[in-house]
Computed example of a mutant assay.
Amino acid sequence: MTTTTFHTITTAVHATEGREQINRENLGYRQEDLANLGRYGYILVSTVTVPEPDGVTRLIDTLMLVEQSE
């Protein structure tokens, strides 16, 4: 039997001036999350960018884990 598990990570990136440090931190946390989930066997299957009217762009990463059981 095969079990498939999905996990999503959402990261906010701000287009407004003065938010560079927050953007760097958010993107750093995203990289850490992706690496940590990768250690458990998750693979990145999709990244979608969603621009919002307030100048924030959301990065939505979808990861998948496929487990085989006997």
Rank of each mutant, 00 (worst) to 15 (best):
M1P: 08
T2P: 06
T2N: 06
T2S: 03
T3Q: 13
T4A: 11
T5P: 02
T5H: 02
F6N: 05
T8N: 14
T8A: 14
T8D: 02
I9F: 04
T11R: 08
A12T: 10
A12V: 11
A12R: 13
A15V: 10
E17Y: 04
G18C: 11
G18N: 05
R19A: 02
E20H: 03
Q21L: 09
Q21V: 15
N23D: 02
N23Q: 13
R24G: 11
E25M: 07
E25C: 01
E25Q: 05
E25S: 06
L27P: 08
L27K: 11
G28M: 02
R30V: 15
R30M: 15
Q31M: 02
Q31G: 06
E32A: 07
E32I: 10
E32H: 07
D33E: 14
L34Y: 14
L34T: 06
L34K: 12
L34A: 06
A35H: 00
A35W: 04
L37S: 08
L37N: 13
L37T: 13
L37P: 03
L37H: 09
G38A: 06
R39L: 14
R39I: 13
Y40F: 13
Y40C: 01
G41Q: 11
Y42N: 05
Y42M: 10
I43P: 07
I43T: 15
S46C: 10
S46P: 00
T47V: 12
V48E: 01
T49Y: 14
T49H: 07
V50H: 12
P51Y: 01
E52M: 08
E52H: 05
P53C: 00
P53N: 01
P53V: 08
G55M: 09
V56T: 14
V56P: 00
V56H: 07
V56W: 10
T57P: 04
T57K: 12
R58A: 10
L59E: 13
I60V: 10
I60R: 02
D61K: 02
T62K: 03
T62E: 05
L65N: 14
L65V: 06
E67D: 02
Q68W: 04
S69H: 15
E70A: 14
E70F: 00
